[in-house]
């Protein structure tokens, strides 16, 4: 990652700000006036120490739609999604300029506790990471940490979340068994159930299917289609077909720069940038 951005610095010392996303989104907004902006990435730069990972990203993700972030490895797409719920602050020596806003509130607002922010944003990771607890306790974990201990509420949330993540029928008879006894695909759906148990506004998915077989992948994709009725979803993926299948909007990142942002259909049919076309058609990346 570092070497790649270093290379970038050598070859392209001054990158012009890319504002394609903003324009595209405005066009998009005109056509569908009922769609609200959910996540606004506002001239955002991000640094690991002195290494810059994101260069002046600027685009808006619409509410209750699926936004896919694509690009080759090390392009900054994971960095971006992990910054939306400030997970990257766990790394030492990170810094940023610009802003990310959820609706109108900045995620860096000093009034806003980072735990409160993360309760509003669910996240699913590349490698499924269920806790060493029972299935039930896994799902209601976010309620437990918020101090919710009423059994009736917990039971209800558990059932609802597992149904929403299409896992209920498979595990309803063994809710109190260890989550470690599930299969890989089930574990990932359990993580989705856990992420949505708190009824967040946004669901971040960082390559949720990269460790799964095609059948489990298909199930999760179906699930994403269902979930977007209730949540704004941001998904990072390496799989071009997947981005095309599940997303409404697509952002293409290359070496820390947002190259193109637009409606998925349009972008896959007739990309505006040559780089995008080459990446989508598989000529590089």
């Amino acid at each position: 990652m570092n070497t790649m951005t270093d290379d970038l610095k050598k070859t392209e010392p001054k990158t012009p700000p890319v504002t394609v996303g903003q324009e595209t989104y405005e066009k998009h907004d005109q056509s569908k006036s009922d769609v609200r902006a959910c996540i606004t990435v506002d001239h955002y730069d991000f640094f690991y120490g002195k290494t810059q990972a994101i260069y002046d990203a600027h685009f808006v993700m619409p509410e209750k739609q699926v936004t896919a972030i694509i690009g080759p490895s090390g392009c900054g797409k994971s960095t971006l999604i992990r910054n939306i719920n400030r997970m990257n602050e766990l790394v030492d020596g990170v810094s940023h300029t610009g802003d990310i806003r959820i609706y109108s509130q900045s995620i860096y607002d000093p009034q806003l506790e980072v735990t409160e922010l993360r309760k509003r944003i669910g996240m699913v990771f590349q490698k499924s990471n269920p806790f060493p607890k029972s299935i039930y306790e896994n799902v209601i974990y976010s309620l437990r940490v918020s101090g919710q201990n009423r059994k009736s509420i917990l039971d209800e949330v558990c059932e609802m979340s597992l149904k929403a993540s299409a896992l209920w029928d498979e595990v309803k008879d063994r809710l109190h068994q260890s989550a470690m006894s599930l299969s890989g695909g089930q574990m990932q759906r359990l993580c989705i159930a856990r992420a949505i148990a708190n009824r967040p506004e946004i669901l971040l998915m960082d390559e949720p299917c990269s460790a799964l077989d095609p059948i489990a992948t298909a199930k999760i994709e179906e699930l994403i289609y269902e979930l977007k009725k209730d949540f704004t979803i941001v998904i990072v993926t390496h799989n071009m077909q997947q981005a095309a299948r599940v997303s409404d909007m697509t952002a293409f990142f290359y070496m820390g720069n947002l190259v193109e942002f637009g409606e998925t259909k349009k972008m896959f049919m007739s990309p505006e940038k040559k780089q995008t076309e080459e990446y989508i058609t598989g000529r590089f990346g």
Binding site: N85, M87, L90, T115, E116, R118, K119, I121, G122, M123, F125, K127, N129, P130, F131, P132, K133, Y141, S142, R144, V145, S146, C191, R194, A195, N198
Partner: peptide
């Protein structure tokens, strides 16, 4: 204890101490 487990807990809105107490220590 895998780091992913800590991240999973933090992403659920748990504080660092809650993460240690509820996830890291049992594991």
């Amino acid at each position: 204890v895998p780091n992913g487990m800590r991240e999973g807990s933090l992403a659920c809105g748990a504080s660092k101490w809650q993460t240690i107490q509820r996830v890291v220590l049992p594991a």
